[in-house]
Design a protein around this nucleic acid. Structure first.
Length: 157
DNA sequence: GCCAACGTTGGC
DNA sequence: GCCAACGTTGGC
């Protein structure tokens, strides 16, 4: 089992959208490192932190889980999709997705600013808190995952 | 809106 | 294979 953090822009697809949908295909990943992680290291039932990026208060806001095996991302072959890949060929799929199932909102958002206060400690190796990080799908160690989850029921800083 | 970081593209 | 140009991400 691997623990995960998936980023999404709340203006595009936020935690409330996932809660309403229940299960959603996590399409549109167009980065090879993220693709490799999705394709090669996800397993059904893996826990996922849902993170809001590119917004006023970037934060981990909810919990989800991997709900399917990886499969080719059909939006790559759809000219009408914003994620269309002109070089995509269904015979040799380049991009993959997994389904994600909503589990719950966190009791409070755990903001990036708070996570960064642990950037020299428990979260030192977490790409999210490092400058210039652009990985939209990242694995966490069980220790990192548990550490972050334990912040939930502490008072907000 | 700005800008730094990063990945991709394409000329050579 | 190198590297400059360009586009995107994403925090601030």
């Amino acid at each position: 089992m691997t623990h995960w953090l998936f980023k999404s822009e709340p203006g595009v697809f936020g935690i409330d959208d996932l809660a309403a949908r229940g299960v959603e295909p996590w399409d549109g990943v167009r980065n090879y490192q993220a693709r490799n992680l999705l394709r090669d290291r996800t397993a059904v039932g893996d826990p996922v932190f849902f993170y809001h990026s590119n917004c006023a208060r970037p934060a981990i806001v909810g919990l989800a889980e991997i709900a399917s095996s990886p499969r080719p991302d059909p939006t790559a072959f759809d000219p009408a999709s914003p994620h269309h890949d002109p070089k995509g060929d269904p015979a040799t799929p380049r991009w993959y997705l997994v389904d994600v199932r909503y589990r719950r909102h966190l009791a409070r958002p755990i903001e990036l600013a708070e996570l960064k206060t642990h950037a020299e400690g428990a979260l030192a190796e977490l790409p999210l808190v490092r400058r210039g990080n652009r990985l939209s799908v990242m694995p966490l160690s069980p220790a990192q995952f548990d550490f972050i989850l334990a912040l939930e029921h502490r008072p907000a800083p």
